[in-house]
Design a protein around this nucleic acid. Structure first.
Lengths: 237, 237
DNA sequence: AAACTATTGTATCAATTCGATACAATAATA
DNA sequence: TATTATTGTATCGAATTGATACAATAGTTT
């Protein structure tokens, strides 16, 4: 996008929006863009190139925002209500960002569907960077998210409920942690995502019984107590 | 579609395809179209009108093929690989059906995404009818499905695995049965969809404990044995 | 260096769930 | 009235899960 009309490089009427989850300091976070010269926020998104598969497009968008490749991501819903995107908001937005008035037949003024992806990334490895329309690309705690444009709040809500649903089902939580972590880190993640307290001993039993964790050396924290083991996720079930 | 180019009435580059499940004679079935003058089969689909929400479009497509309104349906995936649809196949198809040669810049020759929906309907209430491109719209047992065009086989496979996954999770199986059914009918459905045998007594205990079944009169089958109760599904949990 | 503290790893008991079996009830038939 | 096939429910034991107990230990305090 930006100034140049690249509408012909991309599939018309379709965008991808990515709810990018990270985990840090016992907080579940998502990446949000702040549009230039506004206090409007949105989930990172983009368009699909003519010769790109959907997942490839999502990976490209994610790489541009986070600097990471090979990110865990999953389609979760297509948002396509006819009024999901207000053209008034869009015009005001582009005016603020670009200083240009969108003509009524501009390709962006057509109805758009958006394919929702959610991504799980290692917070410590990501280096967020804004896109051409935005000032900042920053982490926000999932429970203190500013008002988002269009239906982006709904997207976040749906992404979160999908993540919750699949956290136990598939074994995807590890994508939110560094490669090596303690059992306490893992429990913390589960408790935060699921928003429930779990019994430490039973959580440990359950995780160990899955046979997907490799026990490494102990982590000497410097605290006056027994040192916890470090673990690494291995797909072996 | 048919002869008239209605491309301007519809969102460009996007279609909806519906995997429509029914259940009859202990068989899980789906509705398939057979294209005119070919032995090619496909899942029913259509396009999205400019002023239609996605779910509305899917409901419309379903109504056109089954005569039913208010069908249980659910988005399950967007199929968007860049090579998912062969233009050679498309041209051959339209030539056979229409007798017309598609020009290279026809809107159908552009890349298309398809939003996959799966629908669960009461087999006994549906009256399948073909669309403008097809001869027949008929039920096929899920395990004897003819070869399908494009990526439609993959769609069916993914729809089925999604149905299996959610059958227990959400309580959606009832949509495949008549309003009133016996416990045996229900077990039959579960066994067929999940492709496993279940223990009758435990299945009954589990279903009754959910508190979602209303017990009605007995069903006098005329068989020389104890008559089973009839049940009706009620959302009450 | 011995006592103390906070946390961790594991064992264990009880409660619940789940698989399997037993059996009484019953609609129609012989 | 006995017989048959199926249904509804109870129950036993195994497996899973929730809750509690407790020993092990890295560092601090005395």
């Amino acid at each position: 996008m930006s100034n140049i009309d690249r509408s012909y490089d991309y599939l018309p009427g379709i965008s991808i929006d990515c709810v990018i989850f990270g985990f840090h300091d016992s907080q579940l976070k998502i990446l949000l863009l702040n549009f230039k010269n506004t206090d409007w926020f949105a989930v990172p998104g983009g368009f699909i190139k003519e010769n790109e598969n959907l997942d490839e497009a999502a990976q490209r968008i994610l790489e541009e925002r986070t600097g990471l490749t090979n990110i865990y991501l999953e389609q979760f819903y297509v948002f396509g209500d006819k009024n999901r995107r207000s053209n008034e908001v869009l015009k005001a937005l582009m005016l603020a960002v670009d200083g240009k008035e969108l003509s009524p037949d501009h390709y962006l003024m057509k109805r758009f569907l958006s394919i929702g992806y959610y991504a799980l990334i290692d917070f410590t490895k990501a280096t967020p960077s804004p896109d051409a329309l935005s000032n900042t690309c920053e982490w926000y705690d999932i429970d203190t998210i500013p008002t988002l444009i269009y239906d982006h709040s709904e997207m976040v809500k749906k992404a979160l409920s999908t993540l919750r649903f699949f956290l136990d089902e598939k074994l995807i939580g590890f994508n939110l942690l560094p490669e090596v972590f303690t059992m306490n880190d893992l429990q913390n993640l589960y408790e935060t995502v699921l928003d429930t307290k779990l019994l430490r001993t039973n959580f440990q039993r359950k995780m160990l019984s899955l046979g997907i964790l490799e026990r490494l050396d102990k982590k000497m924290t410097g605290a006056a107590n027994k040192a916890p083991y470090l673990y690494r996720f291995t797909g072996n079930s």
